[in-house]
Nucleic acid binder design. Structure first.
Lengths: 261, 261
DNA sequence: AGACTTAGTTTCACTTAATGGAACAAAGTC
DNA sequence: GACTTTGTTCCATTAAGTGAAACTAAGTCT
């Protein structure tokens, strides 16, 4: 929702426009984009043309409306396969999912937001971008808090101001102070709980994934509904969850960090 | 493999570099990229910096090597959800998969290559190469040929020269003429067969997905292995497959084309 | 129909940003 | 400690992006 202020050169502007189209969802007319963007008509027009030319956007033949191009899906597959924890964590998630029979989420952090890079549903399971690629706030999710808690102070200070503290439910943190206090607890316990903070009836227990050097590189969670389990029952799975997180972290040894800006 | 000649402006170059990193898979050092690219040192350097800055690439803290950024995964999720046939086709694929019990693939075309946007695994556990976001050549896959066959002449003339005609198996087409001849047959029959042309032991039957205006917008296929089924048995599924393709096409009425360059 | 509004595209003098050869710094290697 | 390799910065040159305004095309209204 935030509009970035920085834009290195033409490329930055183009990617900014790309993101604008993405945020809009579906297809957008030129004039809509013009209304939103701070770019003058001609500039916006040329940027869009270039992006279409490059296959990053597609333009409807008739209506002239813009939508994200499938080239992105191709690129992202590479990103997912080579730059995310997903492929590496897969066997561990499979095992955990089979044992606990609940939904498993694997997430990383991307510019202050939680990005789900893989998951296992309690019922059916198949891996596509359908579920990977989704974003969620960090301050009100199990995985988000697990990552925030173990982030180096400098990185956390960057990320905290980006949190909106929108009250999704009565249990959602609404200000930095209370969240910071909970992060302290999470650091002590080693796991984070989502106590219906993002979605009513949905609870989870999450553990940070740390490389051997100690850097948080993501988080795993076991999610369920209040109708199926209690927080105490989730807590019983803590050892198993930590074991999974550790296993992934150990394998990620050679891996590179997922950025901090 | 192919190095594009066109590059509109700085944005084109930047995306070109992005693609270079993607093609490389995993992480790449600056000098490797320098060796491959036609850009001078300083230029390449600045382009990479910009992309890192924008979160499209990540740079390893220690080694300085570049890899695709997770931001792409986020963008691609939007692309997949809003600009691909996948969400729309989902119920139809589910139904088809349940009925035939074989692997189902949904593909679109992207700059001459086949892009798998969704799939259903067969009940049995044998992995095909396909996955959402994966690319495959058009000339030697069922879905590829199904799309090629029904492409408007102008579009096909653009796409044909992009085919490599690499002989994956003895059954692979190795020159345009024989492929063109088969496309004729496919147009007459309404479906395309993959006769172990891409992968030994893997066969499929594929049908084009056409919008009501008649434009091909993708293809669905039923894939199996020679150990499980024969081409004749696949052919028996033709009516059911065509029905699925038509159902998706009908729903895609309002949808926009997937580009032609 | 003709006048009028709105959406999209092109022009062109102007300005800013990208360019790349070369110098420089840092990390490895002999 | 000299030498090679790899990565980063400088800066005058050049090219590319800019955006106000003019223009064209597609609706709307009376």
């Amino acid at each position: 929702m935030g509009s970035e202020g920085h834009a290195d050169g033409t490329v930055g502007k183009a990617l900014d426009v790309l993101e604008m189209v993405a945020d809009q969802g579906g297809s957008v007319r030129f004039s809509e984009l013009l209304a939103i963007s701070r770019y003058p008509k001609a500039t916006l027009y040329r940027l869009l043309q270039t992006l279409v030319n490059q296959g990053m956007l597609t333009q409807d033949a008739d209506s002239g409306a813009y939508a994200l191009g499938v080239r992105l899906v191709r690129l992202a597959h590479n990103a997912w396969a080579h730059s995310s924890l997903a492929p590496l964590a897969r066997p561990h998630l499979d095992a955990l999912a089979a044992e606990v029979g609940e939904a498993i989420h694997l997430a990383q952090i991307d510019s202050g937001h939680i990005l789900f890079v893989d998951k296992r549903k309690s019922t059916d399971m198949f891996e596509t971008l359908a579920q990977a690629g989704r974003v969620a706030p960090a301050y009100c999710t199990g995985v988000g808090k697990a990552i925030l808690a173990f982030l180096p102070d400098a990185a956390r200070d960057k990320v905290m101001p980006q949190q909106s503290f929108h009250p999704y439910t009565p249990a959602t943190h609404t200000e930095p102070a209370s969240l910071m206090a909970e992060l302290e607890v999470i650091r002590a316990e080693g796991v984070a709980f989502d106590r219906e903070e993002h979605e009513r009836g949905i609870i989870s227990i999450a553990a940070p994934i740390r490389s051997r050097s100690g850097r948080v590189i993501g988080a795993v969670s076991i999610a369920t509904s209040t109708s199926r389990h209690t927080l105490e029952e989730l807590n019983a799975l803590k050892p198993r969850l930590l074991q999974c997180a550790e296993a992934v972290g150990a394998e990620a040894e050679t891996w590179q960090f997922p950025e901090t800006n």
